[in-house]
Amino acid sequence: MVDRIMRQFGLQASAMHEVEDSHSSTVYRCTLPEGENVFLKIPFTKLKFQRELEAYEMLKGRVAVPEMLEYWPGDEDCPGAFLLSELKGKPLTSAAAPSIAFQVGVLQAEMHAIRPPAEQVLTGIKNEFPDWSHFIEQQFYSFAEDVKGILDEQLYKKSIEKFEKMRQQLPSPDGPSFVHMDFRPANIIVDHDQVTGIIDFESVRFGSTEGDFTKLYRDFLSYDESLYHAYQEGYKSIRPLIDLERVLPFYQFVDAFNSIGWCKRRGIEKNALFLEENLSRLKNWLSY
């Protein structure tokens, strides 16, 4: 399959390495004979391909993303593929300076400032904003079917009750905005003192911004108050920021619960550490 796609793109690589931290697609880092790096990306499904295609077309010139050099719409054996430029740098880490956190805030706010296009019909990116509460409910109860086999009956029941109680206390949703749905450090690229952009758009929607802060807080902002403060200042330099203290607890709880279901779907053994982390998070939330 990879050889076929490379032929489609006329791509000749002197070296190829599969990117490990990619959960919804197969990605290869390809070094060209002249030394330049490009990325070959094969989404797992046609829907993920279409979302990614529409995202790159919509974000171009508005948000820092890789350049889509070429794409192939696929056939009955392949959902499609992309040839993407390299963003210089490495994924964001918690060791980053507050100045980087400020830029991350700017980057996310620029993305959230994008609204559904009135003149364009989208077939991949769905607008979930009109019924955002139902969208979150559907996701939760879909993963609940997987979680049920992992939690004991009492923990499972308490989780359902907490979800319903916290959901009723949420403010009105903020949007409709372009939301990444996987805005985490692994998808944010940093080169020394500059954020060079964001990658991976297989899960994007139009929806409420409130669902897009959780993973960034979990894996980056929660480590240092100065990072959290700088991030908020960066975000607010572009658009108003919702009251995170009011919505984050709900989405942190939901993230822990849904992540347990995700581990069940993707394989408990190979995701054992992530499963344990989220079981611990869930139990902490249920003890409040």
Rank of each mutant, 00 (worst) to 15 (best):
C30G: 11
N37G: 00
K41P: 06
F178T: 01
Q50K: 15
F143K: 11
I242K: 10
V190M: 06
P173T: 09
L53K: 14
D77W: 11
Q154A: 13
M1F: 06
I150Q: 08
K88A: 15
D191F: 13
T26E: 11
F206V: 07
P79R: 10
K162Y: 14
A230I: 00
G175P: 07
G80V: 03
G207H: 05
F39Y: 15
L170Y: 02
P130D: 09
E86S: 14
I100Y: 01
F140T: 13
D182K: 01
G89L: 09
E34C: 08
N187Y: 08
A13H: 04
D191Y: 13
H23G: 04
E67W: 08
V27W: 00
G80H: 02
G105C: 05
A55F: 11
E276N: 11
S222T: 08
E277D: 14
F82K: 07
R184K: 12
D200I: 02
Q103F: 02
R281W: 13
E153G: 03
K215W: 06
R239K: 12
D3H: 10
V65C: 03
I188P: 00
L282A: 04
G197F: 03
P79C: 10
R281S: 10
M181E: 13
V104E: 00
A101T: 01
I150V: 15
Q120G: 03
Q108P: 05
L286N: 08
W285P: 01
I242D: 10
D255F: 12
V204S: 07
V121W: 03
S94R: 14
L87G: 00
E137R: 11
T26L: 14
Q169V: 10
F102R: 03
Y141L: 05
K264Q: 12
V38N: 05
P173M: 07
I238Q: 05
G124V: 08
Q138H: 12
A186K: 13
K148Y: 13
F129C: 06
V190H: 05
E57R: 15
D212R: 00
L273M: 07
A15M: 10
V190S: 06
P66T: 03
I242F: 04
M181L: 14
